[in-house]
Nucleic acid binder design. Structure first.
Length: 475
RNA sequence: GGCGCCGUACCCAAGAGGUAAGGGAGAGGUCUGCAAAACCUUUAUACAGCGGUUCGAUUCCGCUCGGCGCCUCCA
């Protein structure tokens, strides 16, 4: 078991991680609202959470990772009066809410899979936990934190002593309503809805009976409900994007602790945004890139994963195609090295038998991870290790594969892409190589170079090595 | 109006009160008929600007300029 330090948003400081129970970790990561594709900014956060889980597991913790799928309750508007995002998307696309949810949930996991993001231990849908939410709301209500107004059940933030602690909010200094019209039914602008009853959605799906009338849950309650259901009323880590600090997570804390009467989450971790030149990536500004777009532009999804690894999760990372190109070059070079190591070393050296020098690299790599997931430093360690001439190929291979347990770049499965070329093409290429060899032997370099160029235009690069000519795909 | 972050070489990006990781790109070299690949070497007297604290700051403090995020659905 390795000591780990994380930056806890609660308290805004690096803190030593101490799990509630020994070797187990309960981790809840806010999942997607499945009304549209995830964009690469969203995906950055999931890469971060994946690194977090992989790191904890590497250090010996048994992690239960829970992720929600928001398929109801998340409103599209700037205030609590907007339409549910799922309903809106379904209406606009002429599909049922169920179809929309299934489609985008599948798309989401297809993306995360392509990024080598491990599946959470438990994936739970909001719509399958409505009764649990109602039960939790009733506890909050029984404890006196709610009021009913205008058809909605509200959480009364003034009853919750340290509301806004996570975000450092001071209620009296916030200019609530400066940019958004405040719901007139609210006693306090920061009150939020636990349960909606909206007659205008009477004939639509996503309505459930409740003690407060037919309606649907507020967005925040699902995370409180499902996290506690699967991880217990107090658990270790809750993560998400920085945008969730001030509202979503702040409200989650208020309602959760109002229900149970005790502390809910010990460590809060938030991933910074992926930003473009003009600011953050968002669906409304039109600068909305999906992983699929990157693939269509010729990138491997793992190029994007590598790109994410290049920046610390608590710093904004600026996306650019040039940056992605650089990530691709670096990743391909890494893969080439691993392939070469496999060819030279055969099987990796057994980890326990590695000597002092390799183990120092491993320790440095782990130190970086343990220091609030310093991936750029961990990556730098990996590169330095890869270039160390004092190490044997078997040692280097063993270590790089070991590190890849966290990096998640699929290095164990790395192999020459040439193996995917069909036999007929291989035969054709080999004939060309033979003809070129003959030309070279006759010192007819013009012909030799012509053949090499012909192959090059077809994406096949020839390399003359001491023991003969080999070919490889360039794209 | 409030809260917070950032500004490091051509690009991305770490970092530490004592003299700047790593990657990409570039340059030179070895090898080669020439290439490619690989390997070797190389690329910030200095970390936006100006002050202050200090024996010493790029790293701490203040101000200025510039960029960004949150306070409103949002990873």
């Amino acid at each position: 078991m390795h000591d780990v330090y994380f930056f806890n948003t609660m308290g805004r400081s690096i803190q030593r991680f101490e799990p509630l129970h020994d070797h187990t970790v309960g981790f809840y990561g806010c999942g997607p609202t499945v009304y549209n594709f995830a964009h690469i900014g969203n995906l950055r956060t999931y890469v971060f959470e994946d690194i977090l889980v992989r790191t904890l597991r590497r250090f010996g913790y048994d992690v239960t990772h829970v992720m929600n799928i928001t398929d109801v309750g998340h409103l599209s508007g700037d205030d609590d009066t907007g339409e549910d995002k799922m309903l809106k998307s379904a209406r606009e696309r002429g599909k049922s809410v169920l179809e929309i949810a299934r489609f985008y949930t599948d798309a989401f996991f297809k993306d995360t899979e392509r990024l080598n993001i491990n599946r959470p231990t438990i994936v739970c849908k909001a719509t399958e936990h409505i009764q649990d939410m109602i039960d939790l709301i009733r506890r909050i209500e029984a404890n006196g934190y709610t009021y009913f107004a205008g058809g909605n059940l509200y959480f009364d933030v003034s009853k919750f002593g340290h509301y806004g602690e996570l975000a450092g909010l001071q209620l009296d200094q916030l200019k609530a309503g400066a940019r958004v019209e405040v719901d007139p039914h609210k006693r306090n602008p920061f009150d939020f809805v636990l349960w909606f009853t909206k007659s205008k959605f009477e004939n639509q799906a996503l309505l459930w009976d409740s003690p407060w009338g037919k309606g649907y849950p507020g967005w925040h309650i699902e995370c409180s409900t499902m996290s506690m259901k699967y991880l217990g009323e107090q658990f270790d880590i809750h993560a998400g994007g920085v945008d969730h600090i001030a509202v979503h997570h702040t409200n989650e804390i208020a309602q959760s602790e109002a229900a149970t009467g005790h502390k809910w989450v010990n460590y809060w971790m938030h991933a910074e945004f992926l930003v473009l030149d003009k600011g953050k990536m968002s669906k409304s500004s039109g600068s909305f890139l999906t992983l699929q777009t990157l693939v269509e532009e010729g990138y491997d999804p793992l190029d994007y994963r590598y790109f994410c690894l290049g920046g610390h999760y608590r710093s904004q990372l600026s996306f650019s195609w040039e940056g992605l190109d650089q990530a691709r070059s670096a990743r391909l070079s890494l893969v080439d090295r691993v392939i070469a190591l496999k060819e030279r070393a055969g099987t990796p050296a057994p980890l326990p038998r590695l000597g002092e020098r390799p183990m120092r690299y491993r320790e440095a790599f782990d130190e970086a991870l343990a220091d609030d997931l310093a991936m750029p430093r961990a990556l730098a360690q990996a590169w330095t290790m890869l270039k160390d001439p004092e190490m044997t190929p078997a040692e280097t291979l063993a270590l790089v594969l070991d590190m890849d347990d966290v990096l998640g770049l699929g290095l164990a499965g790395a192999e020459r892409r040439e193996t995917s070329v069909d036999a007929e093409t291989v035969r054709w290429i080999e004939e060309k190589i033979q003809k070129r060899a003959d030309a070279k032997k006759a010192r007819d370099f013009a012909t030799a170079d012509a053949i090499r160029n012909e192959l090059k235009t077809r994406g096949i690069q020839l390399e003359d090595r001491p023991d003969g000519t080999v070919w490889r795909l360039t794209e």
